[in-house]
Amino acid sequence: MNILAPVRRDRVLAELPQCLRKEAALHVRKDFHPRVTCACQEHRTGTVGFKISKVIVVGDLSVGKTCLINRFCKDTFDKNYKATIGVDFEMERFEVLGVPFSLQLWDTAGQERFKCIASTYYRGAQAIIIVFNLNDVASLEHTKQWLADALKENDPSSVLLFLVGSKKDLSTSAQYTLMEKDALKVAQEIKAEYWAVSSLTGENVREFFFRVAALTFEANVLAELEKSGARRIGDIVRINSDDSNLYLTASKKKPTCCP
């Protein structure tokens, strides 16, 4: 029983979405980590199913952070610029490998004057999406500063980075190629996964967020498995959650593979 209603059918991930460019990807494996797949099959994902992964979206003003989120979460696009005040967030629920998983997408203000407010929401992010405008080199140059600010509040070793070029529809293919070269370089430097999207046309938006969801989920489960270490998540839960769970232990499948 879960108060969360079933996940929308178009938010179900049965396999790992692939990266956009192999040169700048967090990893290029074809499938989820075998341990993750195994854990999901055996319902040994611990609390991940109810974990809400915090994702923050940062970047220069008017690069299209809000539009990107709105395109994915609401499938809308507003041509008019409306500055985000401080922060905003959207919830997006997925089902990855049969396990419910939620992303909380924090949309931050790009305007300088809101930065001190927005930055208080950086803490505890599991993924950082740095957005820049594919038609504005300066916005790409500023991504490193955005990253530095966001990493002040987070653990650089565990957070997943995504570098996203927006407004792809506005750049010609020649211009895009040039920009992509620079962006790939930056992405490799900061060890981020590179994506290029258009919120206007919707190009790559869904693919991108699915990738974010999948990789965050994978990292979460792996961390969970690691944390439990020698003790098995299933076991520890059984011990802790008293006699009322005896029914469960009986019905639960025994883990058969993957330590």
């Binding site: 319902h43 611990g46 199913g49 419910p100």
Partner: peptide
Amino acid sequence: DDEDGSWLQLSSNKG
């Protein structure tokens, strides 16, 4: 921890 347990329990039911 206790709550996590309930979460898990509920999750597995939901399967």
